[in-house]
Design a protein around this nucleic acid. Sequence first.
DNA 1: CGCACTCTTGACCGAGATCAACATTCGTGG
DNA 2: CCACGAATGTTGATCTCGGTCAAGAGTGCG
Lengths: 252, 252
Amino acid sequence: MLTDPPADLSALLTRLERLHGLPREGRAALAGLPLHEADIAAGDDIVREGGRTGRCAVILEGMACGYRLTGDGRRQILCFHLAGDMPDLQGLHFGTTDAGVAAVSRCRVGFLAHDALRSLCEREPRLASALWRETLLQGAILRAWLLNVGRREAVGRLAHLICETVARHAAAGLTTDRSCDFPLTQSVLADALGLSVVHVNRVIQKLRREGFIAWRGGRLTVTDWEGLQLIADFDPAYLHAHRGPHRPERLP
Amino acid sequence: MLTDPPADLSALLTRLERLHGLPREGRAALAGLPLHEADIAAGDDIVREGGRTGRCAVILEGMACGYRLTGDGRRQILCFHLAGDMPDLQGLHFGTTDAGVAAVSRCRVGFLAHDALRSLCEREPRLASALWRETLLQGAILRAWLLNVGRREAVGRLAHLICETVARHAAAGLTTDRSCDFPLTQSVLADALGLSVVHVNRVIQKLRREGFIAWRGGRLTVTDWEGLQLIADFDPAYLHAHRGPHRPERLP
DNA sequence: CGCACTCTTGACCGAGATCAACATTCGTGG
DNA sequence: CCACGAATGTTGATCTCGGTCAAGAGTGCG
């Protein structure tokens, strides 16, 4: 299913336009950049921690995650990346990334050379602005995660992650109902929530048993959205996914 | 001690130059912007969660923190901000911030109008680039915190926070040895680490007893830097505080 | 000088970790 | 198409780190 048609930047372009108000010219220029594509198997690295590759990744299809490791090898997942995300914008400015990026499901990934992207940003400040905005949005999500891990107990933590994931799929135009792809393993989920696999398993069962979610074969459906939001203490404001008339503030 | 001389943007300018390679012209232009100053008492808000103030804060003196609250009022501190930091760059693009900013110690704060800063960024893309870079750096710190809270136990967690804070003070040119201002209350520390006050107290005592730190009257000294780094599992790479010949990648 | 905040200590409790099987699913090659 | 092995998911028993509660000791500010 990932082989044809060859993926392109459309998910990214849609995203930059819908969420960050990137105008036509910027999109056209971006679409014209040379794009090096690759298929990455689930679990493999897309960007290695501390790598110095001279290029930026774009997730074209599939789901990825950013992560960091402790010295003794425990992993914390920092963020999930959907199609259209650019997980390592940091490299554009610093040359290196402090965090690795791994494929959660099988991914089709595009790579843009830093040089090319940098000079495009120079010519097209609206693009730079949109990418800066994207960086800020990733920061907001990170803050929500830190609150989640630091101050919510396990059930709320999982519920919140689920709400966020469904909401982000919706905001990116990747789903229209309360369901989405959720190709995670329970052990991946554990690394994302700062919990153990065993406990994650128990919490999932609780959410299933009580009728909040259905999750089978990589597909997640929220069966009680209001209820789940409630136990998750979820307020989607931080996603800045203003639906309706779309008027993001901008660096004009 | 905070009354005279009137603080100015020098901490921010130094920071943008040292850490993000902002050239003279950008600094001069920034210094020329009208700056509205205010004194904020410890514990008070500098930026309210969800506020829509039309301006950006700059910490001129003192220490602040970004935070988010759960629905039932528990607080997670997301980041500490030192003199020279801009804690709510998000507002420049989104108009709102999802996180509040509070003064940890008494702070002198400057406010820059969004309009003015936006049009300056337009005229001076190097400034926009430096601020984008600053956003990315804040993201890296946030990732380190999430790893810390999600995957390290209490002692390492506190040790890591201390290492980071000292290292950041040093990188910003606010200290030259292994000591720095640390005007925190144990309950603030608890909110930063995702722990309870009682437990934080015990962990502090442990670090003191075992000779890693001395902390009295708002001043912290690391008495065993190597040792502390070790139990903290601290690797300062993520701070991108390349000392020595300073050559940040840049959007030229 | 007294009240409020911060720090400290002790006793107890509980959410979640760890350990250890066992069950199920799935991809792979025969 | 089946068989097998490796991931993944499930369950139970036990342990522990850190939370909660409660009380006292400093400390500092008005």
